[in-house]
Every structure is written in structure tokens, then in C-alpha cells.
Amino acid sequence: MSKLGVIGTALRSNFTVRTFRASYGISDTWLLRQSPRRFSTEAEQPPQDSAVDSFLKTPDTDIINMLEGCNLTMDDVKVDYNWSFTPNGMMVQFPSRFAYDKAVKAIGRKGRLYRLDRADRSQWDLIKPYSGKTVLLQGLPRTAIPEDVERFLTGCEYDSSSIEMFLRSTLLPDKWATVRFPSKTEAMNVFIKKNRGICHNNQILVRVLQ
């Protein structure tokens, strides 16, 4: 019988960790804290020769490494973003109650304090898995259309049918777009090559969504 959990804090986070259950689920709620450090899935510009290695050190792998021995895979971890693509937390599904109990012990052993909340399976299903293969483009002009995104991404391999654009309601409104790539490596290449590139005189910030 599988168990489902949500962790709202990664190794470098300062907000809550939420562990949730299915309807048959986990009975305990764990309240823990961690020293404040900003959690972010927004990568900094890495040196060209170590870009891929740096990219592989994501919040997902941080969680899996921290919970070593719990039989987790990358498919068991999702980053929970809010409407502005700021991470709210990390969701983790556990393959068994034994794995969940082992995770609690691992957290305690490493001296990290977290808050663990309960939830049900529907919350997991609502979280879109970006898996390091989706790129967020921030700062597009209000008048930008999908063809402008395609021109910006010239030379990159991506799924043109995956382009989604939306207007950001800010003091000076601009557009954001998400684009799906065939692999994490391709998504990272876009970050390396296109971050802070120009589209219609606007500088575009490129982020890889985990």
C-alpha cells in the first residue's frame, strides 16, 4: 500500500515541509523548523564548463539525497509553485509506510527541523510536474505572441505546441511564457544560451522549473 507525502521544504528552504497522506494515510503530524535560508529553483548563471553538473543539483535531488534509503525516485518529488512561480514547497510521495517512517528518522538524524502537514492524494494530482524540462520566460513584451517566443528560442530544440503565454498583472504589465523541452539538458542549454537575451528590446529572464 503506497503512502503519499508532501515536503514543503527542501535542504535550502525556510518555509514549511508538508507531509500528506492518502485517505488511509499517516496519522502523525510533525512540526519542525529550519534555520532561515532562501529556497529557490531559480538557478544562477553557472560557469560554462560546469553548467550541466550544477544544473543536476536541484531541489528534487536534494530531497532524494537527504532521504537516502527511502527508495524515492525523481518521479516521487514535485515542486509546488504558486501563481508567480515562487516555490511553496516540495511534495513527496512515499512508496510505503516504512519509507515514510524512515524519512522522518532521516530528517531527525540530520538535525533539520521541518513542519510536516497532512493532505490527500488530490493535492499531488493537482501539481504539474515540470521535472526540469520546462523553461519559464519572464519579461516578454505585452504584445508578444508565440512566434516571438519561437524567434527568441531560435537554435533550441523544444515543443512548439507546449508554449503557454500569460499576462502578468504588475505595475508595468509584461508577459510570461512556459515552454517544454525534450530533456533537462536541452532546458539547461536554453538557460545558458538565452538567459537575459533580448525580445523586442525587453531583457528576458530564463528560469528552469523543477
Score class of each variant (00 low, 15 high):
A144G: 00
W176F: 09
F85P: 01
Y114W: 08
D148C: 00
V52R: 13
R142E: 09
V77F: 05
E150S: 08
F152C: 00
D80R: 05
I127V: 15
R12E: 15
S96Q: 10
I7G: 11
T61Q: 10
G89S: 05
E150M: 07
L31Q: 12
F98E: 13
F98N: 12
S162W: 02
M90T: 07
N88W: 12
L126I: 11
E157S: 08
E150C: 05
V179G: 01
D53S: 08
M1V: 12
D120F: 14
G132P: 04
E164G: 03
M74T: 15
S2T: 10
L205M: 08
Y81Q: 01
I163P: 00
L72P: 03
L153D: 00
T16R: 15
S13Q: 04
S160F: 00
D75I: 06
G69F: 07
S23N: 12
S160W: 00
D60E: 10
T19I: 15
G69I: 02
I192C: 08
E157Y: 09
L167G: 03
G5P: 02
T29Y: 09
D117S: 14
N202M: 03
S40E: 09
L116H: 09
R142Y: 09
V206Y: 03
L140E: 00
T41L: 07
T61N: 06
K57H: 09
T143G: 06
P141C: 01
L116C: 13
K78F: 11
K193L: 13
W124Y: 13
A103L: 05
I204P: 00
N65V: 03
F191M: 02
L31G: 11
F55E: 04
Q48S: 10
L136H: 07
T154A: 12
T134L: 02
L4I: 15
L205G: 09
I198T: 02
I145N: 08
L205A: 11
R18Y: 07
F152V: 01
R97W: 06
K184N: 11
Y114R: 15
I163T: 05
W83P: 03
R38L: 09
E147I: 01
R109H: 12
F85I: 04
C156A: 06
P87G: 08
A119P: 14
A177E: 02
K102V: 13
R142A: 04
P95K: 06
L11V: 14
V17W: 13
S162A: 05
K184V: 07
D28E: 14
S131V: 08
T170I: 03
D159T: 05
L171W: 07
Q34E: 14
K193R: 10
D80M: 05
W176P: 04
S169L: 15
R115D: 15
T16N: 15
